[in-house]
């Protein structure tokens, strides 16, 4: 039963979300024109279809316990050819994944304060470490040069205005831009 519940769980989550969104779609405010469908019709139609597909999968996985799934053509071709064999047997490192995601969220929340240069050096170096790379020299050089290179390409060549950060970190960014001749 637990297996069945696990198989059905993604569909249950999507189904619940679809139900909530359907309720919200019913509250969309607009000036109705007589004889015309409103802006809620399209999302509601999609949500109904989404709900139907999820209900089918929930019944199939949870109640009937059926595992048959009609695969898309590419999936079938890959499976028939044996190209996907062994994929399931690959080792899994959930802690690395959690570390990578947490690091990414920290980067996104701090880039505004630290500025692109400092935040990126830290992110590149730590991501490589989390990714089980241990050549410290390469990590140091590639994260510093990589960060400089990205600033040069995007601010000097492609004209993208990357975040400079707030005081005192912005001083580092501004000094760097002056050295690179970016105005």
């Amino acid at each position: 039963m637990l297996n069945r519940l696990l198989r059905a769980s993604p569909y249950i989550v999507v189904q619940l979300a679809a139900m909530v969104l359907y309720q919200l779609a019913g509250r969309i405010e607009y000036a109705a024109a007589p004889g015309r469908i409103g802006p809620d019709f399209w999302p509601k139609s999609i949500l109904v279809l989404l709900g139907l597909v999820c209900v089918y999968e929930i019944i199939k996985n949870l109640l009937v316990g059926e595992t048959f799934t009609a695969a898309g053509l590419l999936e079938k071709l890959m499976k028939d050819s044996g190209a996907t064999e062994g994929e399931e047997k690959l080792r899994s490192y959930p802690l690395l994944l959690v570390g990578g995601i947490v690091l990414t969220i920290i980067y996104v929340t701090t880039i505004d304060k630290l500025g692109f240069f400092l935040a990126t050096i830290a992110y590149l170096a730590l991501f490589m470490v989390i990714g089980r790379y241990r050549r410290w020299g390469v990590i140091a050089v590639s994260s510093v040069l990589g960060s400089l290179g990205l600033i040069f390409i995007f601010m000097k060549v492609v004209y993208v205005s990357l975040p400079l950060g707030t005081e005192p970190f912005s001083a580092v960014s501004l000094l760097l831009l002056r050295v690179m001749g970016v105005h």
């Binding site: 569909y11 999507v14 969104l21 607009y30 802006p39 399209w42 999302p43 999609i46 949500l47 279809l49 989404l50 597909v53 999820c54 089918y56 999968e57 799934t69 009609a70 695969a71 898309g72 053509l73 590419l74 999936e75 890959m78």
Partner: peptide, 26 residues
Amino acid sequence: SLGGGSITNAAISLMLGLLIATVGVD
């Protein structure tokens, strides 16, 4: 029907994409 994954999963993925496109001002 032609892509990877099961057809129902692909349909769910498609409908989520269509829903994402509805976010914002109509």
